[in-house]
């Protein structure tokens, strides 16, 4: 009892001594190397996790949209693979990432007789698998929302399924899913915070460490919160800009001219 009242006294005087802004400045000044490490880890895991998740999504999306073969054996294999992908998607979308982290991290430790994965690669794996489940659905949606006429146009000229996908469908799919992919990245920047449960030094975990030293719960988490916001806000703006760039030029140049039929026809924009 005595100890606790002593502690509250100390805290009370500290609060009087140090104003809000002073505390914030102190937190940043004292802990900026840790905060920078947290930011770096958060961005690293979110970025790599989103990219690998997207690759998983594209791969599963492509597999799931292959037309069923006429060969019964191949058809059976295709169906089994599709069911496995569906199960993966359902499980990882239907459970919290925090719990997935623990299951994967400690499951690995259990299976290998106590070896734990290094936490950052473990975090990347967890975020990738989790994001992959969402991306699988996003990519599939991005493919099946493309007009059937695009497939038929390609097939009618003699392109096979793979040629149609790579030349016509996937470029349009990427454009369709870009906003959702950006969104997933921003979500991942925030959701890497759950990886503190396996001990990753991401931004939230850094906050956790800071308060153990200064006991300024509110100010510390507020600083962390603002940093998260600055990160997501900046990333959102940058991705918007990229989306706009990729949406392409709305104008085109008319080549040659009708009044001068001999005008040379310039070939451009073939990429």
């Amino acid at each position: 009892m005595h100890f606790i009242s002593n502690l509250t006294n100390i805290l009370a005087t500290q609060v009087q001594q140090l104003g809000f802004f002073k505390k914030v400045v102190t937190i940043i000044k004292d802990y900026y190397p840790n905060i920078l490490e947290g930011i770096a880890n958060t961005l690293l895991i979110a970025l790599i996790g989103t990219v690998i998740g997207l690759l998983i999504g594209v791969l599963t999306g492509l597999i799931r949209t292959i037309p069923l073969s006429k060969n019964p054996v191949v058809k059976c294999i295709q169906k089994i693979v599709n069911v496995i992908i569906s199960i993966y998607v359902e499980i990882f979308r239907g459970t919290p990432m925090m719990v997935q982290s623990m299951v994967i991290f400690w499951g690995f430790a259990g299976l290998t007789g106590g070896n734990t994965l290094p936490v950052i690669p473990a975090g990347i794996i967890i975020v990738s698998i989790n994001t992959g489940a969402y991306m699988a659905e996003i990519v599939r949606g991005g493919i099946i929302s493309i007009d059937k006429g695009q497939f038929e146009g390609a097939h009618s000229l003699g392109m096979n399924h793979a040629q149609t996908m790579f030349n016509v469908i996937i470029p349009q799919m990427f454009r369709n899913i870009l906003p959702s992919v950006s969104n997933e990245f921003v979500i991942n920047v925030k959701d890497t915070s759950v990886l503190n449960v396996i001990g990753v030094y991401e931004l939230y975990k850094i906050g956790d460490i800071i308060i153990k030293g200064n006991f300024w719960m509110f100010e510390t988490y507020l600083v962390i919160c603002v940093i998260y916001f600055i990160l997501t806000f900046t990333i959102t703006r940058i991705l918007r800009l990229i989306e706009k760039k990729l949406a392409g030029n709305e104008n085109y140049v008319i080549c040659g001219s009708q009044s001068n039929p001999d005008a040379e026809i310039k070939v451009g924009g073939t990429n």
Binding site: G149, E152, G153, A154, S156, G158, R175, Y252, T270
Partner: peptide, 24 residues
């Protein structure tokens, strides 16, 4: 595939590839 290249189709809805220029 080579048959379809020899017997092409032109559709009511054009079905041009939206991700490519006219030339492409």
């Amino acid at each position: 595939c080579s048959y379809r290249a020899k017997v092409c189709m032109v559709f009511q809805q054009f079905n041009l590839f939206n991700n490519m220029t006219a030339l492409e």
